[in-house]
């Protein structure tokens, strides 16, 4: 498993404890006392490291190669998932997956960014960076969900929109804009969950909903820390500093009143225990749908508008 720099002391200590345990078992020397001391030390170290994650540590977690993806969660959360392809206009964008499935005996539409866990998959999925046809595929499925009165679950996990010539030629801007506007008017509940990186417009195009949640170690941001550093200080190596100033962690977004909640992750990150993580997400979706399902369409839409209307910080001043 890919080890992150900040958690290496924990891993090294764990390895040492394992070694001593093995030694105790295989030889005459009794190291139980030493092991106990080290285990205490480990607990303190873990509390210290995982209890004080810095924004940059969370960025690393959000980008972790083994971090569970949309398809992982679909497998754990839903039954009978059927994926559907294509935007009916140009092609099929594999950076976004979409389909229908059952959640607690009820049909739902699920849409999410899909990145790969290795180079081959990442090339196929374009590293989870959608082209316009991806957003259009997503919108097609949202409209269908509306027709059949299915709630929509969106998983957000992208560095951002594909920065490329063809994406621009095929109308990246208008594809994203259309999604924002059309999601605003969907007559079914929409629950959005950031599971990894929420990168700028490419993330937002699946992100207008009645509830927005973030996994604890995911990020949501107007631009990547590297991009921000390059723009603000003309130095991409200042990404760490940018990750702090830009306020991109789940707790930051909660403070900024953008979120409906932070979903807890297992110690060390979602990749350490996908099942635990899926359970936490399941609880959240269940609660959200319970709150949203019985609202009239008018109330649903009015609440959605109120929610976004109130995001932002300004002073009213005097006329």
């Amino acid at each position: 498993m890919q080890l992150l720099e900040f958690e290496k002391p924990v891993i090294h200590l764990k390895e040492k404890i394992e070694e001593l345990k093995k030694l105790t078992k295989d030889s005459e020397i009794d190291l139980t006392e030493e092991i106990k001391t080290l285990e205490k030390k480990l607990a303190v170290l873990e509390d210290d490291i995982y209890g004080n994650l810095k924004p940059w540590d969370r960025v690393q977690m959000a980008r972790h190669q083994q971090r569970p993806t949309t398809l992982d969660y679909i497998e754990h959360l839903f039954v009978d998932f059927i994926e559907f392809h294509g935007d009916r206009l140009y092609g099929d964008d594999e950076a976004i997956v979409a389909g229908i499935a059952m959640f607690h005996e009820r049909p739902i539409t699920v849409i999410g960014h899909q990145r790969g866990k290795n180079t081959k998959e990442n090339i196929r999925r374009n590293f989870g960076m959608p082209h316009p046809e991806g957003y259009r595929k997503a919108l097609r499925h949202m409209k269908q969900a509306e027709k059949f009165n299915r709630p929509i679950i969106c998983f957000i996990d992208t560095k951002g929109a594909e920065p490329g010539k063809e994406a621009e030629e095929r109308g990246q801007s208008s594809a994203i804009a259309q999604n924002l506007m059309e999601m605003a008017g969907l007559t079914v509940p929409v629950v959005c969950i950031v599971i990894g990186e929420g990168g700028s417009g490419g993330a937002l195009a699946l992100g207008v909903g009645d509830k927005i949640y973030m996994l604890e170690n995911s990020t949501y941001s107007v631009i990547s820390p590297e991009g921000a550093a390059a723009l603000l200080w003309k130095d991409a190596s200042q990404a760490q500093r940018a990750a702090e100033s830009m306020r991109i962690t789940s707790y930051d977004l909660q403070d900024l009143h953008v979120l409906d909640g932070v979903i807890a992750e297992p110690r060390g990150g979602a990749h350490r225990d996908v099942e635990f993580q899926a359970k936490e997400i399941e609880k959240t979706i269940t609660q959200a749908l319970k709150e949203l399902t019985n609202l009239s369409v008018d109330t649903l839409l009015e609440n959605r508008w109120e929610k976004y209307k109130n995001i932002g910080a300004y002073e009213e001043g005097t006329e």
Binding site: A177, L180, S200, G201, L204, Y220, S221, V222, M246, R247, I248, D252, L253, L256, V258, Y308, I311, G312, A313
Partner: peptide
């Protein structure tokens, strides 16, 4: 930051 994004 993200507040700008949300204005979209």
């Amino acid at each position: 930051g993200v507040l700008s994004l949300m204005q979209m």
